[in-house]
């Protein structure tokens, strides 16, 4: 599957499962996916400055009946932990985080590795259901996490590595 195909397949499967409101903070692994989001007229997509801001905007949208997805790099999890706890978990807000995994094998920048190594444990420590994906043919499984947020009654994380994005 080409990189373009995985971006289109991922958005198709997220939409097919009800996602209709997206925010993102950029990542080089997400560049193609963000372009795909920008070009889709059936969804609401906004770029935001920071992950917490995105969580706030998604909360407002969910309160108005939308099904939000936060698209972000794993480094953003570090700044998001408090708000994930005191907003996402306290009010049990069912939204999906689609997280690119910098600092995993394929990573050329050493500074990315410490957070890349910590991210899964950080999310598990605050009891966010967290799933790792490496296979680009798994877009359907990632999409199925959208309704799973309602089953889990709270935030859910999908961490997608270099292999998923066809980036190494």
């Amino acid at each position: 599957m080409s990189a373009t195909d995985v971006n289109q397949a991922l958005l198709r499967d997220l939409k097919a499962n009800g996602a209709d409101f997206f925010v993102s903070v950029p990542c080089k692994l997400l560049g193609g996916f963000i372009s795909t989001l920008e070009q889709d007229n059936e969804i609401t997509y906004r770029a935001v400055n920071r992950e917490e801001e995105g969580l706030g905007i998604c909360t407002g949208a969910w309160l108005a009946g939308r099904k939000p997805v936060i698209v972000m790099q794993n480094t953003g999890v570090g700044t998001l932990i408090t708000s994930l706890c005191s907003l996402g978990l306290y009010y049990r807000l069912p939204f999906l985080m689609v997280i690119s995994h910098r600092g995993s094998p394929g990573e050329p920048i050493g500074a990315q590795v410490p957070m890349g190594t910590a991210v899964e444990t950080l999310l598990q420590t605050i009891n966010i259901p967290t799933y790792m994906f490496s296979d680009p043919s798994d877009t359907k499984k990632v999409g199925q996490l959208v309704p799973f947020t309602d089953v889990a009654e709270g935030p859910v994380a999908a961490i997608l590595d270099y292999d998923f994005w066809g980036a190494r």
Binding site: T44, E52, E53, G54, L55, G56, I57, C58, T59, G60, A61, W62, L63, A64, G65, R66
Partner: peptide, 10 residues
């Protein structure tokens, strides 16, 4: 502020 913004969009 951000929650209010997301709501006002909708």
């Amino acid at each position: 502020s951000s929650i209010g913004l997301g709501l006002s969009m909708e």
